[in-house]
Nucleic acid binder design. Sequence first.
DNA 1: ATGAAAGCGCTAACAA
DNA 2: TTGTTAGCGCTTTCAT
Lengths: 341, 341
Amino acid sequence: MLADMASNRAGRAVTIHTVAERAGVHASTVSRALRRDPAGAPAAVRRIHALAEELGYRPTLAGASLRTGQSHAVGVLVHRLTDVVQAMTFEAIDRAAVEAGYQAMVATTEDDPERQRRRADLLLSRGVDGLIVADAHLDGGYVDWLASRGVPVVLVIRGLPGHVSVTVDDRLAGRLVGGHLADLGHRNVAVLAGLAWSSASTERAAGAVAALRDRGVGPGDDLVVPCGLDVTSGHTAMGRLLDEHPDLTAVFAVNDFMALGAMIALREHGLEPGRDVAVVGYNDVDIAPAAELTTVRCPHDQMGSIALRQLLDLVQGRSAHSIRLSPELVVRASSGPPRTG
Amino acid sequence: MLADMASNRAGRAVTIHTVAERAGVHASTVSRALRRDPAGAPAAVRRIHALAEELGYRPTLAGASLRTGQSHAVGVLVHRLTDVVQAMTFEAIDRAAVEAGYQAMVATTEDDPERQRRRADLLLSRGVDGLIVADAHLDGGYVDWLASRGVPVVLVIRGLPGHVSVTVDDRLAGRLVGGHLADLGHRNVAVLAGLAWSSASTERAAGAVAALRDRGVGPGDDLVVPCGLDVTSGHTAMGRLLDEHPDLTAVFAVNDFMALGAMIALREHGLEPGRDVAVVGYNDVDIAPAAELTTVRCPHDQMGSIALRQLLDLVQGRSAHSIRLSPELVVRASSGPPRTG
DNA sequence: ATGAAAGCGCTAACAA
DNA sequence: TTGTTAGCGCTTTCAT
């Protein structure tokens, strides 16, 4: 019996015809019996199922895909999988996909427009029914191109006007952070603003700046610095900032890794995060509690699964609409009031 | 022209026949002209390429796959993509795959045997030509099952006797760490030993223990504790260890995240990593330099690309063999000598 | 309820 | 060098 199963790969493949022959019915009958909503005599259906199981039959999805024009696969484009937020989001998408009988195929682009187009193209060649884009650029970029080709697309994390997206209300979150720091009494706040082309980065930064200005704290443009999304970038940017603005009392980094890098830079300057300079991050990654980092918690799992649902709606001809989820400020020891004197 | 390209999806699909018709040749001629190593009159080949480009032709890989029995896709099984080491390795595999004209499809299993089998099965249904397994269990598990079905399989990171694997010499690395700590004068060393079913974890731990015993430092079995691979697990395990063994002077965690968690636990106990208790991790993840963490650097990119090569060798009927790469000890401030007195 | 037949897009053996 | 033909595994009318 085990040998039979092995034959699926090793020997001749077990196809729908193999099952049909053994069952003494026509291949089309097997096909019908094996679908989600089987048609046919209940007894026959059961017999065919048992036989398929026994023979170790696995459907060759390429055949079905070719015939139906649907691959039951979706593509996911992320800038890096080593960015744990993108990884979490993809995992959530993947879980939801498997549950819905779909396969999620991921591709990394490093935010490079050329690779974005190329990988999207490859995915399309693979026959994916739609695309989830987690690395959209504010200039439209390949997303506009995809949409103009009629490809079902849903954005996640980073939004873009005119396209269906599943995001957190980053601007509101930024306001929460800005308000928090202002309320603590900070008047000299810097923002590590992330990537200029990412709505997630720019909205968070803009929200914080707006909230600060509302309360009369006006961080000059020289205190809002773009930077990469990882520890090293945050470290470097913060080091430079401290050299130029030794009077800083707080910093908001638009993601936790940058914040962690900033904390390291602070210590190198002899400053204790939370006591000498308040630090706030974004995402509440698993290391944030341990680092006592004040941050913004976002429902990445939800974002992923909702994005998949929305995409399937689009793929299956239903309508889909943008969704903005609520962020939550999580206050920890890294954000204290400014030192007096 | 853009409208033409859009027709690929929106309107009628652009197939090889569309191109053939417009070129005034037969479909098979187009097929031949478009392959990697084109056959046909150079002029005709160029013309067909130009036409294909103009029409926005994208091959429907399902068709080719059905015909040739090769999908030019490989599956990759990891336990979690949020584990940055697994993510790095997958990215390397993915890069190498794209370069070779393949698509890498990843699935996460959480080290759960049931999900391992299920996801492997799904991938196989998708027609992958082979599988790279980054989450192998020492009991054989689904890897044996796959191999017995004749599926080409290459293991990466975690090895398993009797299967082709691409790993780091974890035992040697463990020995380097053990030797390093012994040389510093540590006599009371604990090991956060990771997962019992992972060769990577067990080999690293065993290597360290062996090196320590060689030098007369005999960590008892109560000082070698299994634990999960993330920050939280390391944190918890270290906390418990410190409660039971307040006289510890050094700890080796078989990965950096556990080590980071351990450092946090130390600080909570009023101990300064590197000064009061030496800490060594494993992998040299991007945050390790900032944390001043002594660790072992492993060529994850190389492992990924080599694993893919090996798999393609297997898939294409050539032979493949296990490869063990060299680790490198990176000494930083987190591992100092024991405090005297 | 089941069988027959056709065809999705592609490639490979063979013929010209 | 190019065209012809056949068929990979599957689903889906249409007929029975």
